[in-house]
Simulated assay, not measured.
Amino acid sequence: MSKAPAIIPAAVKQTASLIFLHGLGDVGTSWLEAFNMYRIPKAAPHVKFIFPHAPIQRVTLNMGMPMPSWFDITGLDQNAKEDQEGIEKSSKLLKDLIEEEIKNGIPPERVIVGGFSMGGAVALHAALTSPHTLGGVLALSTWLPLSTTFPQALISGDKKVNLPILQCHGDSDPMVQLRWARMTADGVKAMGFKQYSFQEYKNMGHSSCDQEMTDVTSFITKYLPKTD
């Protein structure tokens, strides 16, 4: 990872962590600002919020221009070749950040991972292939990458079915089409996840909206409740 993640420290004793990955061409700081704007840290003062920055690399889709990216994207259609090596590398980066939180005394079930677009794809992959059952996954405007490797790639599969997952998508997303999101939804449901929720937002493009951020806040406070 290029530089240290942007962080909102817990305002009281930290008993939980949330690691959130930005989308293509973005930086962690913009999601830190969004979380602050929606007062999410105020709703969960015991949570440390971590927003990593993707390394700068060439992206085939954008004519090979270097930009912050978790992996390479060759195209936006279903049959575009996936950058398996890049996805797995970023997934491992995220799993290393999870291990750091665990080492600092936060149990895995008190760690939520999430992300927007390609960041969400990495978060889903990392959560499903982690040796731990985490506190939850926030998958915003995203898809499950390397979907043909599942369910075989699921680790500790029997316990994983209790992993809470919130998938959110705009019905007017021109980048990650709604039908892809629905295919991911079908795939995740078929793997037997019991606490899986799929929310669609009217007229929302490849972005976020107030209702979505309200749902995100509710998910965080539900699955990372304050403990004594």
Rank of each mutant, 00 (worst) to 15 (best):
E101P: 14
K95F: 00
A80D: 07
R58Q: 13
P55D: 10
T74H: 14
V59P: 11
A54R: 08
L97E: 12
P55S: 07
H53G: 02
E88C: 11
E101C: 10
I98M: 07
L76N: 12
S69E: 04
P68R: 09
M63D: 06
D72P: 13
W70T: 10
K89C: 09
P66N: 05
D83K: 05
E88H: 05
M63G: 03
V59R: 04
T60I: 02
K92T: 12
I98E: 02
D96V: 06
K92H: 09
L93N: 09
L61N: 06
S91W: 02
D77Y: 10
D83W: 04
A54I: 05
K89Q: 11
M67N: 05
S69I: 10
K95N: 13
K92L: 13
S90F: 05
I56R: 11
D77R: 13
F71E: 12
I102W: 02
R58P: 13
L97P: 05
V59C: 08
N104Q: 14
I87Y: 02
E101N: 13
E101H: 04
Q84C: 10
N62Y: 09
M67D: 03
G86K: 03
K103G: 04
I73G: 08
I102S: 04
M67E: 07
T60V: 02
M63E: 06
I87M: 09
M67A: 08
R58E: 14
K89I: 01
F71L: 14
N79Y: 12
D77L: 14
N79V: 09
E82F: 11
E88S: 08
L94K: 11
K81Q: 15
I87H: 04
E100T: 15
N104V: 01
Q57I: 03
A54V: 08
K81E: 15
K81Y: 00
W70A: 12
N104P: 11
K92S: 11
L61I: 10
E100W: 00
K92Q: 15
E101V: 05
T74Q: 14
I87A: 05
Q57D: 01
Q78K: 15
L97K: 10
K81N: 09
K103T: 14
G75K: 11
M65L: 13
Q57V: 00
I56P: 03
T60D: 01
H53T: 11
E82Q: 15
K92E: 14
S90N: 09
P55W: 00
E85Y: 04
D96S: 10
K92G: 01
E82I: 12
N62A: 04
D72S: 08
Q57Y: 00
Q57E: 04
T74P: 03
G64E: 03
K92R: 15
G64F: 05
S91H: 05
D72Q: 07
E85H: 10
T74D: 06
I98T: 03
H53C: 07
M67I: 06
Q78V: 13
M67R: 08
D83H: 03
L93S: 11
L93G: 01
N104R: 11
F71S: 12
E100H: 04
L94C: 10
K89P: 01
P68M: 03
N79M: 13
H53K: 01
S90Q: 09
